[in-house]
Design a protein around this nucleic acid. Sequence first.
DNA 1: GGAATATCAATTGTCAGACATATAAAACTC
DNA 2: GAGTTTTATATGTCTGACAATTGATATTCC
Lengths: 239, 239
Amino acid sequence: MKNSANKPADLSAQIAASIRDAIIAGELIVDARLPSEAELAEQFNVSRPTVREALKRLAAQALIRTQRGATGGAFVNHLTYPDAYAQQITTSTLLLSMNEVSIVTACEARFALERACTQLSAQRRSPDHLATMRAEIFRQSQPGLSDEAFCASDIAFHRALVDGAQNPVMSYQLAGAVEAMQPLMNMITFTARSRERIVALHSQIADALEARDATQADAALSTLEAYTMSLADDVMASR
Amino acid sequence: MKNSANKPADLSAQIAASIRDAIIAGELIVDARLPSEAELAEQFNVSRPTVREALKRLAAQALIRTQRGATGGAFVNHLTYPDAYAQQITTSTLLLSMNEVSIVTACEARFALERACTQLSAQRRSPDHLATMRAEIFRQSQPGLSDEAFCASDIAFHRALVDGAQNPVMSYQLAGAVEAMQPLMNMITFTARSRERIVALHSQIADALEARDATQADAALSTLEAYTMSLADDVMASR
DNA sequence: GGAATATCAATTGTCAGACATATAAAACTC
DNA sequence: GAGTTTTATATGTCTGACAATTGATATTCC
């Protein structure tokens, strides 16, 4: 009951799917070179532009990379965390902006997932993570800071909190949840007083992590969640 | 210090990025029709094949859809949750298989995130979610079940658990973490005895959620995590 | 007049062939 | 032997064309 049945996909989509499946199935390992475009065209019995469209589809998903020149070609890409982050963030951002996800739902998800990191972060955070958090807190308390810069710093703070768990898979998962909310957070204008409150809560969290006190960090995070939501409610109500 | 600086990207990549930014910035709203390929080619001062490659890149990310015919063209796509799931799972699966993520790291992330859902799921799960979980538990206890089918049912169980939180953003985020682990989980062969134990823990979780007891569900999930990891250790050690 | 049908026009999908450009290896020069 | 030039191979891009799809329009028939 999928597209595969009711609508024959484009040739380029079919070819892309075929190659993608081979990669996922492990038939093509990382850094393996695909046949040249001309060879692929012959294999699939299509023209070179069609093959190229298929390869561009895969390149858009960071599944392959291409290289020009004599020893060039298309290679199975080693999917790096930054690549995956970037895709994750793009997708999450669009999902949030296109599906009328309420601020409440997004906040709830974000903080719930973030709390999942707290336990581990309290155990494992390095001095480096703490230093990053303190630095962002300092930046956030500067009076002249623009709203955009404040939000960006807020995100950097939470990234450090998440990274403190020292689990790259969790960092990757959270990147989407945290960063995708930036557009929503930017809609909430922070008054001087609410910034003060947020900074105070950030400090509480950093203190708790420094003391390796997961329970207290959790509590501060919950308070922050409730406060963020109340700010969001105010903004929604005033319109 | 990115590719944008040291390597001028392909024209098709530049054009794709340009259109993508316009979509993300909200300049192109959902279902808006993009100019025809010929018009885009003229606007960007490139040939049609180049424009087409750019559009295929966007189509691969489900950002646009194309339609043939007189009133056809490329339209900004409404990114649905299933679309986002699919991308999320593909990316996560590749990330796990290509980055030598240890089973320990992946398990840790998965269960930590899943525990984040438990609290909400205990409050909000519907009878429907419970029924799904019970049905999967029953299937898992059937003796003749293949390893693949057991793993698939395991995933379905955990999906129901996550969906019970009634937060689509969390469901989306968790889809990647849970399903991407299928290949890893398939590597662990389950003996009759370990299946029994897993089913018992699943039942405990279902019971706890039925009783809306988040603490007990949490505990059972933690036990399941520890048991899964010990099984993984056994498999690793025996090779 | 209204409905079924035929035609048309716009747009994407595909193709063939060509040239430009990048790049590493081979051949050449000193 | 080191440096330079050539060459082969691959991707990147362009031109031009035709096929297929599909909504809109005109036409025909009752």
